[in-house]
Design a protein around this nucleic acid. Structure first.
Length: 274
DNA sequence: AACGATCCCTGTTGGC
DNA sequence: TGCCAACAGGGATCGT
C-alpha cells in the first residue's frame, strides 16, 4: 500500500522525467479518478500544454507544480502506482490517467480506483492541504507540540497515527512498524502515553520512514506497489511487524500476532510492546 | 467533539 | 476442481 516512503520514492523517480518538461497530452480513462476535482472538465484543460516546474509531496499527496499557479495532485490510494513507459506502448489495464511527456508516457495505474488526481488552483490546493497535518518525514512535530493534541484522547494510538489530520504520511504498514520500533502497544489510548513513550514513537517515525525510503518502499506479495520503472520496493524484507504474524519478534523473540484495530489488520509483539 | 462503523472498489485468497 | 464469500485498505461520510 502506498504510504509516505512509496509516494516519495515514486516522486523521486518521476522528478527527472517530468520536471522542466511540458505535458503534451492527457487522457483520463476512468472518471472516478477525478472525484477530487472541483470541475472534472477542467482537469485536462487546465494542465495540458503546461510545464512541470517542480515536484513536491505532503504526506501521501504527490504534487506537480505547473506554470500558471496550478498544481496537479496525485494520490495513489491503496492500489495506485505510477509507470513511465515509451509513449507508444499499448495502454495497460487499469492505466486510468495517462500523461504524455515528450517521447514518454507517465501513467497512474490503479486497479481499485481508491487513488485520485486533480489539477487545482493555488486556492483549491490550499483547501486540500489545510485538511492535512504536518508531514511525517520533513515536518514532524516534537513531543511538546503533539502532546496537547493527544491529551485526553481515548482512541488507540494507532488510530491517531493513521489520522492524516494529525501527522501526514503514515498508513497501516508503517504505523505498525513505528509502534513496534517504539515498543508501544497499538491499542493504548493515545492520551495514556507517557512523554517517554511519545518520544520513542516520534523518534521511530523518521528512522522507519528513511530506512523504507532507502529500500524504495515496501512491495508486498500482491505487488500492488511498484516503482515507476517496475522494480519492487525492497523494504518488505526489513519489516519487523507488518505481515509477520506467527513469526518471531526480531527484538525479543516473542511471537508477532495479528489483531484488528481501527478496522485495520494490526501486527504487533505482545511480549515487548507495552 | 470524538470515536467507531460503513462504504467505495476489484484482484486475490481461502474455504467448502 | 470450481465457485463464491471474505479480505485487503485510504479517505469520506455517517450515526451515536
Amino acid at each position: 500500500m502506498p504510504e509516505l516512503p512509496e509516494v516519495e520514492s515514486t516522486r523521486r523517480h518521476l522528478a527527472p522525467v517530468i520536471e522542466g518538461h511540458r505535458i503534451d497530452r492527457i487522457e483520463v480513462g476512468h472518471p472516478r479518478m477525478l472525484r477530487r476535482q472541483p470541475r472534472p472538465a477542467d482537469f485536462v484543460d487546465r494542465s495540458r500544454g503546461r510545464a512541470v516546474v517542480s515536484t513536491d509531496r505532503r504526506g501521501k499527496f504527490m504534487l506537480w507544480h505547473l506554470d500558471g499557479d496550478l498544481t496537479i495532485v496525485v494520490h495513489l490510494g491503496m492500489s495506485g502506482r505510477m509507470q513511465v513507459v515509451p509513449f507508444d506502448e499499448v495502454p495497460a489495464r487499469h492505466a486510468h490517467v495517462r500523461w504524455r511527456v515528450g517521447d514518454r508516457e507517465v501513467r497512474l495505474v490503479d486497479p481499485r480506483t481508491f487513488g485520485f488526481v486533480a489539477c487545482l488552483t493555488d486556492g483549491e490546493l490550499d483547501d486540500v492541504l489545510s485538511g492535512i497535518g504536518r508531514d511525517a518525514l520533513t515536518d514532524l512535530p516534537t513531543v511538546g507540540e503533539i502532546a496537547p493534541t493527544l491529551a485526553g484522547r481515548t482512541a488507540p494510538i494507532k488510530a491517531l497515527l493513521l489520522d492524516q489530520r494529525i501527522v501526514a504520511g503514515l498508513g497501516n504498514i508503517y504505523v505498525d512498524e513505528v509502534l513496534h520500533e517504539a515498543a508501544v502497544a497499538p491499542m493504548r489510548p493515545a492520551g495514556s502515553l507517557e512523554a517517554r513513550e511519545l518520544g520513542a514513537v516520534l523518534r521511530a517515525i523518521p528512522g522507519i520512514l528513511e530506512a523504507a525510503l532507502r529500500g524504495g518502499g515496501t512491495s508486498l506479495d500482491d505487488l500492488a506497489y511498484l516503482l515507476p520503472d517496475g522494480r519492487a520496493g525492497e523494504y518488505v524484507a526489513t519489516l519487523g511487524a507488518y505481515g509477520r504474524e506467527g513469526e518471531p519478534c526480531r527484538r525479543c523473540g516473542g511471537t508477532i500476532v495479528r489483531t484488528v484495530l481501527a478496522q485495520r489488520s494490526t501486527h504487533w509483539c505482545p511480549d515487548c510492546q507495552h
